Structure formats: structure tokens, C-alpha cells
Simulated scan of single mutants.
Amino acid sequence: MKEIELKLQGKLKRLTNRTFKFDERVGEGWFSAVYFLKTRDIIKEFRPNTVVTMQFFQKEHAVLCGTDEVIALLQTFAAHPEDLEIHSLRDGDMISPFETVMTIKGRYEDFGYLEGVIDGILARRTSVATNVYNVVQAARSGREEKPVIFMGDRDDHFTQQAGDGYAAFIGGTIGQATHAMNEWWGKSGMGTMPHALIQMFGGDVVEAARAYHHKFPEDDLLVLVDYNNDVITDALRVAREFGPTLKGVRVDTSRTMIDQYFIRHPEVLGTFDPRGANAPLIFALREALDAEGFEHVKIVVSGGFDEKRIRSFEAQNVPVDMYGVGGSLLRITIGFTGDNVELNGKPEAKAGRKYRPNPRLERVELTAQEVVELKN
């Protein structure tokens, strides 16, 4: 399989530095519903040069994402893209239910078969961007704004990472877990250690941290402390070992596990759920670190966090400094619809749909299709 890499030279400055990669089989109709392909062939024979206006919308309050990708798609795979008249909102725009986010006017046979592909791009990117935005707002709902790291590499197919990472960036995360997630917006992946590194050192968190710091001395030392299901004990061990060099600890306790702190202190158990990285455990961890003079050590939590759980933490003023969030950000909850609403400049649409002008849309001009680089 080959990929087509395109750096779009469009009218809007937002497009000139974005690099998207597409499977070249998009142009062969491989990813389009067969009825769109059949319609294209019928129109070519029976209604050639029919001009339609295709309009896209969705039904939620959302953060729009995917428009640049769609425009690049049209530049790459539409026949005669320079003849298309495109109006679009921008990635990152806040949109309302049923608001028109994009219109494409041109000959149906030039671009109509891409309708479903466009819907899918907008649906996935907008869903992820909106999910991230809501989580980021939740992390800002307390006394301080807490950054969010996108850790969705294990929650979906790896081929989605670049687009999901870009959508997460649009939604407001400060960093992503993999290099691929950063590909479309020019950064590098960030992260420290997994449980596997600690396992390689026989479960000795200090030894694993020592090896990490030796190998990557320029990195901020952030140590994972839940491997032995005793986060306070292990956090204090690494804090005593590294002192001011230790920048933070991460708690990633499974939602099926109860930390050893509660086994040693059953008197603190009450009506709360003691499993996972819960609020009382984080309060106890902060207190233990501060009691030994490690106020500088930040606390990062991850593992099953979503908007609701983060809002609960912030409402309780849980002393978290950063959230790592994964799977909850990848739920596809927003669907887009593309409709042909004008035929040769006159209103023509299925019942219940009509052309809805949106003064917020900006004109996007595409050039004649340029030579693109084919990569093996």
C-alpha cells in the first residue's frame, strides 16, 4: 500500500503548514460506499456537469475538527479541485447543533463519491476534539488549571494516532503519548516509564528510576509508583533517593485494586470506593510527601479518568497536578451528515433538509491538482 502525502497550498494560512497522509485508494473509491460510486457513474452518463451544493452539519454543541483534513482530501482526490467552491469553518471553532460547518459546490461527478469519507473525518476528529475539550475544561474547574496528557495509544488502532493526536491538540491537551500523535502539529511524543521498565528491575522502583535517570538525564524525572500497589511507600522511597531531582510521581492504580495504604489503615475506610487512584489515596500521598519535605514533587494520576471523574476530583480539591487520559477521549459521539441541498443553483433537497447559509463560513480556494509525492 502506498500513501499520498500532500502539503496543501490553500488560500487560508491555516492550511499551508499542515501535512496530511492519505491512502491513495481513496481516489479509487475503495473507502466510499458503493452506492456513491454507482451514483457517480450514473451521473457521468445521464446528468454530466450537474452542479450541486453539498452541506455538512451535526447535532451537538461541539469543537469542530477535521475541516483542514477534508480540504486536503478534496485537493488530493477531487477531479478539478480548482473548480470547487468551498466555504468552511475552522478547526477549533465552537459549533452549535445543526450549524452548517462546510459547503462544497461543484460538479457531482468531481467529488460526490467522497461524501461518506468526509462525514467520517469530521465525525471522528470532532468527537475526539470535543471529548478532549470537555476533559480539559473539567481539569480547569478547580482552584488551579491542571494540564491533560493524551494517552490514547492503547485504546484504538495505531493507524488512527496521527489524526487523533491532532484532534486532541485542537481540543486542548498539552502533550501526546506517541510521536505519531504529534505528526500533524509538529511536536514529539512525551512520557517517562511504563510498568514494564519496573518489572525489568524486579519490581524495584528506585532501581528502575535510577536507570531511567542515567539514560535520560535531560528529562524531568517522573516516576510511576503503583507497580507494587503501595504508592505512598514507593513514592517516599524515590523521593528520599532523588530529592529535588524528582519532579513528580504518577499513580496509575487499577480500578480493581485497593492500595496497601488502606490495608494498613482500615480506619480511614468509609463510604467511598477504595479501588484505583481515588481521592483519599491522593490526599494521603500528598500529605506523606509534604511531611518529609517533598512539597515540590508533583502528582500525576491516570487510569480510567474521564470528564465526570476529573470534575469530581476538582470539586474535592484533590491535590492532583496533571491528568493522563486515554480511552474516554476516543468515544465517537458526534455524527455528521452531508446533504445535497442545491441542484444547478436552485433549492433541491430531501424532505426535512434545506440549504442553511452560515455567515461564519470562510471561502477556501483550491489550486489545480499538483504533483504529489508517492511514498512506499
Score class of each variant (00 low, 15 high):
Glu5Ser: 11
Leu6Asp: 03
Lys7Met: 09
Gly10His: 11
Gly10Tyr: 02
Gly10Thr: 10
Gly10Lys: 01
Gly10Ile: 10
Lys11Pro: 01
Lys11Ser: 12
Leu12Pro: 10
Lys21Leu: 14
Phe22His: 13
Glu24Trp: 15
Arg25Ala: 14
Val26Cys: 13
Gly27Arg: 14
Phe31Val: 10
Lys38Trp: 13
Ile42Cys: 15
Ile43Leu: 15
Phe46Val: 14
Phe57Ser: 00
Lys59Thr: 07
Ile71His: 04
Thr76Lys: 04
Phe77Thr: 10
His87Ala: 11
Leu89Ser: 02
Arg107Thr: 11
Phe111Lys: 08
Gly112His: 03
Tyr113Asp: 10
Ala123Gln: 11
Thr126Trp: 04
Asn131Lys: 07
Val132Leu: 09
Val136Leu: 07
Gln137Asn: 12
Ala138Leu: 06
Ala139Lys: 02
Glu145Gly: 09
Pro147Leu: 11
Phe150Cys: 12
Met151Leu: 11
Asp153Gly: 00
Asp153Arg: 06
Arg154Gly: 01
Asp155Met: 13
His157Ser: 14
Gln160Pro: 05
Gln161Phe: 15
Tyr166Met: 06
Tyr166Arg: 04
Ala168Ser: 13
Ala168Val: 08
Gly172Gln: 07
Gln176Glu: 13
Thr178Leu: 02
Trp185Arg: 13
Gly186Thr: 05
Gly186Phe: 02
Lys187Thr: 12
Gly189Asn: 02
Met190Cys: 13
Met193Asn: 02
Ala196Pro: 13
Leu197Phe: 07
Phe201Arg: 03
Gly202Asp: 00
Gly203Glu: 01
Asp204Tyr: 03
Asp204Lys: 04
Val206Pro: 01
Ala211Arg: 08
His214Val: 14
Val225Thr: 02
Val225Ile: 11
Tyr227Val: 00
Tyr227Glu: 00
Asp230Cys: 06
Val238Gly: 01
Ala239Thr: 04
Glu241Pro: 04
Pro244Tyr: 06
Leu246Phe: 05
Asp252Phe: 01
Arg255Ala: 12
Met257Leu: 11
Gln260Val: 01
Tyr261Arg: 11
Tyr261Phe: 14
Arg264Trp: 08
His265Gly: 09
Glu267Gly: 14
Asp273Val: 13
Asn278Trp: 04
Arg286Gln: 02
Glu287Gln: 15
Glu287Gly: 11
Phe294Asp: 05
Phe294Tyr: 09
Glu295Thr: 11
Val297Gly: 02
Ile299Val: 15
Val301Gln: 00
Phe313Ala: 13
Glu314Cys: 09
Val318Arg: 03
Pro319Lys: 08
Met322Arg: 12
Tyr323Cys: 03
Gly335Gln: 12
Phe336Ile: 09
Gly338Phe: 08
Asp339Tyr: 08
Val341Ser: 04
Glu348Val: 00
Glu348Leu: 03
Arg353Val: 09
Tyr355His: 10
Leu361Arg: 00
Glu365Leu: 05
Leu366Gln: 13
Leu366Asn: 08
Ala368Asp: 01
Leu374Lys: 10
